[in-house]
Simulated assay, not measured.
Amino acid sequence: MNKHTMSLAATAVAALVLAGCGTTSERTSDEPQAQNSKQCKGADGKYVIGMSQANVAEPYRQRMDDDIKAAAAEVPQFEVKFADAAQDNAKQVADVENYITQQIDLLIISPNEAKPLTAVVKKAYDQGIPVLVLDRKVEGDAYTGFIGGDNVQIGTEAGKYVAEKVLPNGGNVVEIKGLAGATPQAERNQGFATGIKANPKVKVVATASGDWLREKGQAQMDALLKANPKIDVVYAHNDPMAEGAYLAAKAVGREKEMKFIGIDALPIPSGGIKAVEQGRLTATFTYPTNGKEAIAAAKKLLVDCGTIEKTQTLPTRLIDKTNAAQIYAQENPTG
C-alpha cells in the first residue's frame, strides 16, 4: 500500500470514529447516557433543577417537595423550580415539556401514572438532561436513576402483619387502593396478596380505589361498609385513605369492629405515625419521600461530576403502638 493510499485509509477511519462519537445532544435510545454529561460544571457552576410533582393534595407529596426544598437549600449551586400536575397526566407532560424548553440542568419527576409520562421523560433524557424518577416509575429505562421504596416488599410486609399478627385466626379484609396506573398501587396490591398467603383463612372480600385521597377513601369506605356486614381489617395503600376509612366507620359506629392499616408514616401532626400513636390506625409502614436522597444524587451528578446507581431502594419499617411515640420523637423533635 503506497503512502497516498494509507493516508486516505487513515482519514476514512478517523471519519468513522468521529461519526460514531456523535456530534449532537440527541442520542439514540439504545445508547447509554453518560451521567456526568455537559450539565456538570463542578462546584463553580449554577444549576436549575425542575421538580415535576404528580400532585400536592397528598400530604406525602407535599412533604416530598418540602424535603427537596430543604435539602437543596444546603447546596448553594442549586435553584429548584416546582410544578404541580394536580393528578393530571396531560398537565404533567406539559410541565416537563416546559422544563425541557427552559433547558434545565436536571429533571426530578414523581410521575402521576407510568405509561402517559414515559415518552416525555425519555425525551428529556434523550436530550442529555439527567432524570431522577422518584417513588412512582415510568416504563422502560430511559432515565438516569430511580429512587424509591420497594412497594412489593412494603405490601408483603403489610400482608404478613395482617395474616400473622392481626388476624391469626383469619378474617375479612377490604383493600382501598391508590390511583390505577400508578406503579405503587399495583405493587402494594401484589405484595399484600403474597403476604396474606401465610394464612389461608384471611380473605380480601372487597376492593375499591381511593386515588390516594382521604376524602375519596372515606367515600369508598362508606360504600364498602354498606355492602359488607363483617370487616375485620382495612388495608389502605396510604395513610390518608386509611384515615378516611376510619372516619367512615366511626360515622356509623363500626370503627371498633376493625383495624386500619396504612402506608407512608409521615412524621407530621396529621401523618400516619401520630394516627397510630392516637389509636386511629393500628399500624403503618414507613415510605421515605426520597427528597433528601434526590438532591444528594443531583449534587453527585452536577457538582461532583460523579455517577449514581440506576436504582436506589430505600427501606421500610413497621410502626405500631409499641414504637410510634418513640419514632415520632426521633423523626420530628420539634413536635
Rank of each mutant, 00 (worst) to 15 (best):
K3R: 14
A12V: 13
A14K: 07
L18Q: 01
A19I: 04
V48C: 14
G50A: 11
M64S: 05
F78K: 12
E79S: 13
K81S: 15
F82S: 10
F82G: 06
D88L: 04
A90M: 08
A94P: 06
T101Q: 15
Q102S: 12
I104A: 09
N112C: 07
A114K: 12
A114I: 05
V120A: 08
V121N: 00
K123F: 13
A124P: 03
L132W: 02
T144W: 05
A163I: 10
P168K: 06
V174I: 02
V174T: 04
V174F: 03
Q185K: 12
Q185T: 02
A193L: 08
K203H: 10
A206Q: 03
A208T: 00
A208E: 14
D211K: 09
R214W: 08
E215M: 09
Q220T: 10
K226F: 07
N228Y: 09
K230L: 04
I231W: 04
V233F: 13
Y235R: 04
Y246A: 10
A249M: 12
F260D: 01
I261Y: 03
I263M: 07
D264E: 06
P267H: 03
Q278F: 09
Q278S: 09
G279D: 13
R280N: 15
G291Q: 00
K292H: 04
A298Q: 01
K299F: 02
L301M: 01
K310T: 06
D320T: 00
D320R: 11
T322M: 11
N323C: 04
A324L: 10
A325N: 07
I327K: 09
G335V: 11
